[in-house]
Design a protein around this nucleic acid. Structure first.
Length: 800
RNA sequence: GCCGGUGUGGCGGAAUGGCAGACGCACGGGACUUAAAAUCCCGAGUUCGCAAGGACGUGUGGGUUCGACUCCCACCACCGGCACCA
């Protein structure tokens, strides 16, 4: 049989039957498998996309055989820059470009025989989809979690245009090479920081891989510390945040972020304001890239005539501004303790400031004695008034108590995670559904007028003032205020790429609902995603955004559980065969269809999975095609030998194979599952009898990997029912073989191998071995001081 | 710098503290064939040896153990993420 020629046939049968449609409210237990939906780019589906879809397909097919009602859907995350740029360049509409790309992606996926439920296909650029993206945004707005604020955008002074982070990588404009600058712009923000603690805590209720949890934790970046109220000599107050309150007596200066509000307030009191203003200007023109390049050299500017008071000892110290203090983190102001913080140390050296040791046990003549070195070592405070002599740990507690009692400060937590800049000055994204009215201010578009659709234009170009291209489309921008009916203008920013993917798994649950994004009944039935597979590059962005939206929806009663995904796994990235990243621009993209045409879908699927450990990154290689083709050929050839007789000749290897393949699929160890299928095939080839029952097990096990071939053979042999009707089971007692070979060691060195019956008693086995001829020379005249028996594995005799 | 991960034959990769190298690729030998392809059988970690057999072997150096790829300590290399986070 040539299995390749039957693949199309089975794909059509599955389609026609709707075999893989997930059934809402079925009595079967449900299992929801999600694989990240692709961005339908012009370069087509490539082998970077396929491993995860194939792997999850294998899990889905196995789960269905086990009796689960499996939801395994697919869709398209189609808004985004590449399509927009492609459309501008070629003068076509992004809508057309998107639908062309989707058609080709879909064709590629279908030819691999992936069992997606296509009746639930979604597309983030579909009006019926982004209607709900906009609706959810408005819920954020109505709860006060969407707000306008000034944030920086990357700006090319030459092209006079705003750039995405991708377009300004390395700090230069992608188009003209001019260094980009940061330009402040009013933008929509989502108050993600309000969910920092919930996002952190919620991780405990998930089964993500441990490294994924750690990455998210690091990104959220919780710090426990102390907020301290400080005063200037002239009476103004400001707060600082520190995680090292024990070093507060070591303050020799304070530093404010250049953007700190106090700086402007003090304008009249700062003697060198000209100089200060210059420094601020210099900082603000620096790009993010430049600022991170400045790791070593510390710069700053003294605020002449300004002094601050150390709240714990009343000491008068100078105040600086410096760009190593970030406005957006903590309070935008820090205490300078050069003795115990390396950055402060560097700054103090440059500025010629005093360095006072307050934690004993280190050497501060060359560098700071930092918390990573002194924590947990029993170091004590010095030069700290009544707190001197306490250990660091004691001092932390006592100082916090002291500050709290005196009203000088309190314990707080801060987070590195910032609010989400939710505006893009682009065309190809979801319009932000708000209008601005001179009288009423920002007014949400009423629900019954959603979606606010993108104006369909033949051609458009980016504006040259940093505004969205939409701002040039006058008859779209001008509208009436939903509130007062007066003249109003639409928001012209669109949402970022990440918007549509922040809730898409909910839409699969109820994709055609035009009353709600999904009904509560269906949400209740499907509950959460049981298994979510995606790329490592999405762990800190998409995965966090998605959890944020979900938690917000949960808090407002729109979904029924606080976490969207139970188990999160990731596939290793597939690189080009030379180890470089696969991309259209490098011209090293590998099309899976090439292999489907040459070897068929089943071989291609097997080869993908046999390439190595699923979770490890690896270069694409095609030398796994042939052995997988050989495996299927052998299984086909074996069908000629199948007889109706019963036989338990193969029961051990069958039981072992069922166990191994089942466990390996659950554990995503697809390569070793295929190895086991190879081992089983070899065993059946060598067996004197291959019974129908034996062969059925083989087909069932191979079915998730090579479904077309398994179906075809099952039908050809007229086994009745379907190959994927059930998943084979085994008896525990069949796992053990009657006789096994074990190793015999003397003083931990292997001296012999013997066959034993593993059910025999330890005493018997040891006696037989000790008295055997082969061991004689090793044991004669020696005394056995210790005997070790590892059941069914080895015997180790320690002699003297 | 910080946080993760990974280091095993010529190659991809297997191994609940218990026979390292399963299963494959490539390779060598053989069978079938006029020949090739396909298929099948056999061999193979490295090294010394004609052989029997020996020595050495999971990044490096130590340690725990009857026994370590696996556990502990120190280090090296590569990959990924974060990066002036107070």
């Amino acid at each position: 049989m040539d299995f390749k020629s039957n693949e199309k046939k089975w794909q059509e049968i599955w389609d026609k039957e709707g075999r893989y449609k997930a059934v809402d409210f079925s009595d079967k237990p449900k299992y929801y498998i999600l694989v990240e939906f692709p961005y339908p780019s012009g370069s087509g589906l490539h082998v970077g996309h396929t491993p995860s879809q194939i792997a999850m397909d294998i899990v889905a097919r196995k789960k269905r055989a086990e009796g689960y009602n499996v939801l395994y859907p697919m869709g398209w995350d189609a808004f985004g820059l590449p399509t927009e740029n492609y459309a501008i360049k070629n003068g076509i509409s992004p809508i057309k470009a998107t639908s062309d790309n989707i058609a080709s992606f879909k064709n590629q996926i279908k030819s691999l025989g992936i069992s997606f439920d296509w009746s639930r296909e979604i597309n983030t650029t579909d009006e019926n989809y982004y209607k709900w993206t906009q609706w959810i945004f408005l819920q954020f707005y109505k709860k006060g979690l969407a707000y306008k604020a000034t944030a920086n955008i990357n700006w090319c002074p030459n092209c006079k245009t705003g750039l995405s982070n991708e377009e300004s990588e390395g700090g230069v404009c992608e188009r003209c090479g001019t260094p980009t600058v940061q330009k402040p712009k009013t933008q929509w923000m989502l108050k993600m920081s309000e969910y920092a603690e919930k996002l952190l805590k919620g991780l405990d209720d998930t089964n993500y891989l441990e490294n994924i949890k750690i990455m998210q934790k690091n990104w959220i970046g919780k710090s426990e510390g102390t907020l301290v109220h400080c005063k200037l000599e002239s009476g103004e107050t400001f707060d600082i945040f520190t995680t090292c309150i024990e070093t507060i007596f070591g303050i020799t200066y304070f530093v404010l972020a250049p953007e700190h509000e106090l700086v402007k307030k003090l304008k009249d009191k700062i003697k060198n304001y000209d100089e200060v203003e210059k420094y601020i200007l210099k900082t603000s023109s620096k790009s993010e890239f430049e600022r991170t390049q400045m790791l070593k050299e510390k710069t700053g500017c003294l605020l002449e005539g300004i002094y601050a008071i150390n709240p714990v000892n009343g000491k008068k110290v100078p105040v600086y501004i410096s760009d190593y203090v970030l406005a957006g983190y903590g309070t935008g102001a820090v205490m300078g303790v050069p003795s115990h913080d390396q950055r402060d140390y560097d700054f103090a050296k440059v500025a010629g400031l005093a360095i006072i040791e307050v934690i004993s046990g280190g050497d501060i003549s060359e560098k700071a004695f930092e918390k990573t070195e002194y924590l947990g070592k029993g170091c004590t405070l010095v030069n700290s008034d009544s707190f001197s002599g306490l250990t660091v740990e004691e001092a932390k507690v006592k100082l916090n108590e002291y500050l709290e009692k005196k009203g000088l400060g309190k314990k707080i937590n801060t987070y590195k995670m910032r609010d989400w800049v939710f505006s893009r000055q682009r065309y190809w994204g979801e319009p932000v559904p708000l209008v601005y009215c001179e009288k009423c201010g920002w007014v949400p578009v009423p629900d019954d007028e959603l979606p606010v659709t993108l104006p369909k234009v033949d051609k458009y170009k980016p504006s040259d003032d940093g505004e969205s291209p939409l701002s040039l489309i006058e008859d779209w921008v001008n509208t009436t205020c939903p509130h007062c009916g007066g003249k109003a203008r639409r928001e012209t920013d669109v949402m970022p790429n990440w918007a549509g993917s922040s809730w898409y798994w909910l839409r699969y649950i109820d994709p055609h609902n035009d009353k709600e994004f999904a009904s509560l009944e269906k949400l209740k039935y499907w509950n959460k995603v049981d298994l979510y597979n995606g790329g490592g590059e999405h762990v800190t962005r998409h995965l966090l955004y998605a959890r944020f939206w979900h938690k917000f929806l949960y808090d407002n009663g729109f979904v029924l559980n606080p976490e969207p995904f139970d188990r999160r796994v990731q596939q290793g990235i597939i690189l080009a065969s030379d180890g470089s990243k696969m991309s259209k621009s490098r011209g090293n993209v590998v099309d899976p269809l090439k292999y489907v045409r040459e070897y068929g879908a089943d071989v291609t699927r097997l080869a993908h999975m046999f390439m190595g450990d699923y979770v490890e990154a690896k270069p694409w290689r095609e030398d796994t095609m042939k052995p997988c083709e050989r495996l299927l050929n052998r299984i086909v050839a074996l069908s000629d030998r199948v007889v109706k007789d019963k036989s338990d000749e193969n029961k051990t290897i069958l039981a072992q194979s069922i166990k191994k393949v089942s466990e390996d699929i659950d554990g995503l160890k697809f390569n070793t599952a295929i190895s086991q299928i190879m081992v089983l095939t070899t065993a059946l080839e060598k067996a004197s009898v291959v019974s129908e029952e034996d062969y059925k097990v083989l087909l069932s096990l191979v079915c998730p990997f090579a479904p077309h071939t398994a179906e075809e053979l099952w039908q050809e042999l007229d086994f009745g029912g379907r190959v994927d009707d059930s998943w084979p089971t085994y008896k525990e007692e069949d796992l053990k073989a009657g006789q096994v070979e074990i190793a015999v060691q003397v003083n931990s060195k292997i001296v012999a191998r013997v066959m034993i019956n593993p059910d025999d008693s330890q005493e018997n086995i040891l006696n037989t071995i000790k008295t055997s001829d082969t061991l004689k020379s090793y044991l004669d005249g020696k005394q056995i001081v210790k005997e070790i028996y590892v059941p069914a594995r080895l015997v180790n005799l320690i002699v003297k």
